[in-house]
Amino acid sequence: MNDFSEIENELRKLRPAQPSPILFERIEEAMMNCREGAWSARQSRKPSPYNWLSLGFGLAAAAALVLFAAISMEHQHDGGKEIAQISRESETAPLRSSAKESTSSDKFLPAGATRLVYNTRNEGLQFARGSGQPLRRLRYQTRETWQWRNPTTGASLRVSYPSEEVVLIPVSGQ
């Protein structure tokens, strides 16, 4: 490599052009916007056709409802058996009264249902297949809450989940 020392020295004397001062400003701005940029990039990511989070919550809520219904039906079924047994052994009055208490204490009654619309988005007009009439597409994002209460024990059960609803409203020309 020593053979090239002279040309290397000549090359080192050549100074590359300096960057424009604007470049520093631009980089500074980019540095400042780093976090904002990353955040907005995440926000503007193309939305999936399915809202997986909502779907997950919805499925979880549905599973909870099914489970609750199954447990409730099982209790009613068991209660019926007890009542039948009690009716066969009607002479044992204390047992019957305790069975009745047990049945009523397991009973949850619907206590309320709310549907909170926290976002509405107008997605514009569209034409359904084969239809000449325009439809306005509205997307509602909601949170639904169902509540049951046991009047005897005062215990309550509440299930809440997010949901999304798309509504098409026909638009008629005036």
């Binding site: 000549e10 050549l14 100074r15 052009a17």
Partner: peptide, 16 residues
């Protein structure tokens, strides 16, 4: 085209 180097003489220009 903007030069890539800052020249001081013709030798440097030729080198660039």
């Amino acid at each position: 085209i903007e030069p890539q180097f800052e020249f001081e003489d013709d030798t440097q220009r030729a080198l660039a």
